[in-house]
Amino acid sequence: MDFGFSLSPSSAVNLDNTDMSLYERLCEREPGAKTCMACGSCSATCTVSAINGMSVRKVILGLQRGQFRDVEKMLSRCMLCGKCTMVCPRGINTRHLILELCRLYGSKEGEL
C-alpha cells in the first residue's frame, strides 16, 4: 500500500553492538580522550576539516560508535599541525591522541 510517504531506516547506532576495544585502548594510551566534551573547538579550527571533514571530536565519537572506517578516513588527512591542541578547552593532547590512534590501527593490539 502506498501512503505517499515512507519511513526512512533508522540511522541510530546500536551502541550494544559496538566494539569499544579500540576506544578503550586509546583511552589507556591517551587518557585525555575520556575528557572530551564534544565542544567542537577542534572542528572549527582544523586545517583539513574543509578538505575531508576531519575533526577530533568526530574521531572520538566515531570510535565510541564503531564507525572505524570513517575515523580512519578522517585520520588519513590529518597534518598534525596542532591547532586542535591549542584550542582544546579540556587541554587534551590531541596530537598524541591522533598519533596513538594511527598506531593502534593495524597493530595486533588494536586489531578490529
Binding site: 585520520l75 588519513s76 590512534l101 594511527c102 598506531r103 593502534l104 590501527y105 593495524g106 597493530s107 588494536g110
Partner: peptide, 13 residues
C-alpha cells in the same frame, strides 16, 4: 622508526 596503521596521504588534495 615507528609503524603506523594509518598513514595520511595528501595526493588527492
Amino acid at each position: 622508526m615507528r609503524n603506523y596503521g594509518v598513514n595520511p596521504h595528501y595526493s588527492d588534495i
